Amino acid sequence: MDETSAEPGAVRLVHNADRDRYEALDGDEVLAVLAHEDEDPPDGDGRALGVRLRDLRSTVVAPERSGAGIGSAIVRFALDDIRGLGMTVRPTCWFVRGWIERHPEYADLLETAAPETDGDDR
């Protein structure tokens, strides 16, 4: 499990790879979860290139801790981890998508859509 270093009593942010999620912990108590799924999208020739995309699917913060910045902290932690791994991100989760819109310095992590064609191959 990858985690941040934390001061005593501070919220710890960890990547729980066995459960495909990032977690914010206070001791053993889970305060927030950011669930993800890794994908191996094919290249233009249909060949798999290894896991390169992390789909951030759902962010949940304990209701009693809502508004304390934990959701933002876990998203930043996840995106920094994804950047360090050289991956791209698909923000399926509305909270993550909005967070990236408010923090354009993370927009470079977004997956790029394949060029659309109009069906006319002339």
Rank of each mutant, 00 (worst) to 15 (best):
I100L: 11
R54T: 04
M87C: 08
A78D: 02
L31D: 00
A68N: 07
E39R: 14
G27H: 10
E101G: 14
C93Q: 10
L85P: 00
L49K: 12
R12K: 13
V75L: 01
S58Q: 15
T59Q: 07
R65P: 01
R102W: 08
G119Y: 10
D120M: 13
V75T: 11
D2P: 05
D55R: 15
H103Q: 06
G98P: 05
E64F: 08
P42C: 12
G98I: 01
P63L: 05
L25F: 09
A24W: 02
S66E: 14
A114K: 13
G67D: 01
D120S: 05
E3Q: 15
E111Q: 15
F77D: 00
L25M: 11
D18K: 12
E3A: 13
L110S: 04
M1Q: 11
H103T: 03
S72E: 12
D2S: 15
S5M: 15
A10G: 03
D121I: 04
I74V: 05
G69M: 04
L49S: 08
E23F: 09
A17Q: 07
F77N: 04
L49A: 06
A68G: 04
E29Q: 13
E3F: 12
H103E: 07
D20L: 06
V89P: 06
V75N: 00
P63T: 01
V60P: 04
G86E: 10
E105H: 15
A73L: 03
A73D: 04
G84K: 15
E3K: 15
P115A: 10
V89A: 13
C93P: 07
W99E: 00
G44E: 06
E101D: 11
D80Q: 11
T88Q: 13
V60T: 07
S58R: 15
V11M: 02
E116P: 14
V61A: 02
L25W: 01
L85W: 09
R122T: 10
D2L: 13
V89I: 05
R65D: 05
A6M: 01
A17D: 05
V61I: 03
E116T: 14
L79G: 00
I100P: 10
